[in-house]
């Protein structure tokens, strides 16, 4: 009995982490869909979200809903600027050049924020926006932080679903990720759609950053590296370019990580995630939901 409730508790914790990964993975998967680029800087946009929220809460003491809105707006802005400044001039360059540029943007954001005049490379405690309460549900306990994460993630996913499947922008975005040239022949403005994708992805990562900061209240300028890579793995696991694949992949990666920490050792959790990556790349490179692509 105790064992079952322990496992259930870990499931709740795993979904908490997985929800954050899913929010980041969506940005990776959408950007990969339209640009075929692993946006290494995406993990740092996530970090930036946590830092903007930290700044807004600790300096201005804003209410939580305003923090969410302002953080999303500023992350969207950063995502837009990154795309316009760093990636757009290289759209026709070799794929690797784009990848190296992405690494460069990522390093720039990290080291710029870690300057002593700004946030320093040390860990910073994230302020509590509200008191943490715990509800005992006899099998497991759940905190209001976890509830907040579940609700916000659910709302974000719902809005994203409407945006992608019910609006003209969404149709255009799917068209671009299916075939860029044909989409542009059909009158889709490619540049606008790519910017739109970056804005959506970055604001979701910003939400992820705030939630991560509230749930694990220690932030650091390098905190985006590992969650960023793991979320990318989640996107690959679900099938890169597939929206619901990113969500399912994020949840699986989050659950795996928490279960490995709980039952094996927390030092092995990164290793297990990368073993999943190797298994996916070798045995099912199109991911869980992907379709096999015929070789040309």
């Amino acid at each position: 009995m105790e064992q079952i409730s322990y496992i259930l508790q870990q499931v709740v914790n795993g979904i908490q982490l997985g929800a954050v990964y899913a929010l980041i993975a969506l940005g990776y998967t959408m950007v990969y869909g339209v640009l075929r680029l692993i946006n290494f800087a995406h993990g740092d946009v996530f970090m930036l979200g946590a830092f903007v929220a930290y700044f807004l809460i600790s300096k201005f003491g804003l209410p939580v809903y305003l923090v969410f809105i302002l953080t999303m707006v500023s992350c969207a802005l950063v995502g837009y600027v990154i795309e316009k400044v760093a990636y757009k001039p290289l759209r026709d360059a070799p794929k690797i050049s784009l990848l190296i540029t992405a690494v460069g943007v990522s390093l720039f954001l990290e080291y710029f924020l870690s300057l002593k005049a700004l946030f320093t490379p040390n860990y910073i405690p994230f302020p509590k926006p509200f008191e943490i309460e715990t509800y005992d549900l006899s099998f497991f306990v759940i905190t209001n932080v976890q509830l907040l994460i579940f609700i916000i993630t659910f709302i974000s996913l719902f809005i994203l679903y409407l945006l992608i499947y019910k609006t003209r922008y969404g149709i255009a975005m799917r068209a671009v990720s299916y075939d860029k040239e044909t989409a542009s022949l059909m009158g889709v403005g490619i540049d606008g759609i790519i910017s739109f994708t970056f804005i959506i992805g970055a604001s979701l990562a910003g939400v992820g950053g705030i939630l991560y900061g509230i749930a694990y209240p220690q932030i650091n300028v390098f905190m985006g590296i590992m969650p960023g890579i793991k979320s990318f793995i989640a996107a690959v696991l679900g099938g890169i370019g597939i929206i619901h694949g990113a969500v399912v992949g994020g949840l699986i990666i989050g659950l795996c990580e928490v279960f490995v920490s709980a039952f094996l050792s927390s030092t092995f959790r990164d290793g297990v995630i990368f073993i999943i990556l190797f298994a996916v790349l070798l045995f099912r490179p199109m991911g869980i939901f992907g379709k096999r692509i015929e070789k040309v």
Partner: peptide, 21 residues
Amino acid sequence: DDFLAIATLGFGTLVRVFFDN
């Protein structure tokens, strides 16, 4: 290209986990 980058990066992290343990 990019998938090779992620796979080698993954191997690098695995090796680091190995050194850590």
